[in-house]
Simulated scan of single mutants.
Amino acid sequence: MGRSAFAPAKVNLFLHVGAPGEDGFHPVCSLMAFADIGDRVSTFEAEALALRVAGPFAQELAGEGDNLVLRAARALIAEARRPVAPMGLSLEKLLPVASGLGGGSSDAGAALRLLRDTLELKIDDIRLEALAGSLGADGAACLWGAPALAQGRGERLSPAPGLPPLDAVLVNPRTPVSTPEVYRRFDADGRFGEVTAPAAPEAFEDATELAAWLAVQRNDLEAAAIAVSPPVGAVLETLAGEPEALLARVSGSGGTCFALCASDIEAESLAERIEAMAPDWWVRRCRLGGPWPDPG
């Protein structure tokens, strides 16, 4: 029987984005948390490295012959510098694609952790994190799935302030949003943000205190994401207008929005109402924090 690893959804509680440097990359400062929902990566016996994709969003990856999971596996095998047993990987795609939830990076991170353990490769955490970072800006953070403050291009990680239990609702209009297109719109608008880490307490007592602090922060890509995909704006406006939402914001470059709630009761009520109001939207109640245990 194969082993499996959990690939949690990433949520940018705030995302500050600066002007691009000479290399074209934007410096960022982001507080990331991870949901207790996400994709799953599993192993199976195979004669050569292969990937199977299943789940409700598998079809949206049908054209990606070089999926990030495969790229992660190839990078890890190259780093091992020794022959390894052939291994098949299966991806259960439960998160929307191109949704601002770091799904691809989280899938890659799960594959790296899973293969290192399954194949008993002597690759330490520092080397593994470097591999994850080489696959994408969110790669290093998504490898561990633990709350973190990410700076630089996203590769400079420092511990997040202590977070209280965070009940939340994630909503996606089922419209993929292109990150490069959002950045092109963002650059055209020229409204670049300050990327110095904001002052924060060592820990937040509850969700209400955290939401009040986050309200002073921003997602600098939010306006560009809504301009590129107006349905994202409809989701955000809907969430912001509901009484259970302590804070509503776009995650990453869109198109998923999240609402923080005071408790699981409020989150459940909000999720049920949104599902009834907009049955075509993807709606999930979750807990934010991390890291969450791998199923093994």
Results as ranks from 00 to 15, higher is better:
85 A>Y: 02
64 E>P: 01
140 A>F: 06
163 L>P: 05
109 G>N: 04
126 I>V: 15
45 E>Q: 12
132 A>P: 15
125 D>K: 11
56 P>K: 06
79 E>W: 07
119 L>I: 09
63 G>A: 15
82 R>T: 14
79 E>D: 09
129 E>Q: 11
60 E>F: 12
139 G>S: 11
133 G>W: 12
146 A>F: 09
121 L>W: 13
143 L>D: 01
159 P>D: 06
76 L>T: 06
61 L>Q: 08
69 V>L: 12
155 E>S: 11
145 G>Q: 05
48 A>E: 15
111 A>K: 11
156 R>K: 14
129 E>K: 14
116 R>G: 03
63 G>Y: 01
134 S>E: 04
94 L>C: 11
162 G>R: 04
76 L>F: 10
98 A>E: 08
168 A>Y: 07
148 A>L: 01
64 E>C: 08
165 P>V: 03
165 P>I: 00
62 A>F: 13
162 G>M: 09
55 G>W: 06
66 D>N: 14
124 D>K: 11
149 L>R: 08
54 A>L: 08
81 R>M: 10
61 L>E: 09
134 S>R: 12
51 L>E: 00
128 L>R: 07
101 L>M: 13
161 P>C: 09
98 A>N: 01
118 T>W: 15
147 P>I: 05
140 A>V: 13
47 E>Q: 15
125 D>Q: 10
69 V>W: 11
98 A>I: 03
65 G>L: 09
157 L>T: 02
49 L>H: 01
57 F>W: 04
165 P>D: 00
168 A>D: 04
100 G>Q: 11
114 L>D: 03
146 A>S: 14
169 V>K: 00
126 I>S: 09
88 G>V: 08
51 L>I: 03
94 L>Q: 05
102 G>N: 08
150 A>R: 03
165 P>F: 01
94 L>P: 00
95 L>R: 02
63 G>I: 01
146 A>M: 12
151 Q>N: 00
126 I>Y: 00
108 A>S: 13
110 A>I: 03
126 I>M: 02
131 L>G: 01
78 A>E: 12
46 A>H: 09
47 E>T: 13
92 E>Q: 13
79 E>V: 06
95 L>N: 01
101 L>A: 02
78 A>V: 02
123 I>P: 07
145 G>E: 01
166 L>Q: 05
97 V>A: 06
104 G>Y: 15
154 G>S: 02
63 G>L: 07
166 L>Y: 06
151 Q>D: 00
65 G>S: 07
102 G>Y: 12
132 A>E: 05
139 G>H: 12
167 D>P: 08
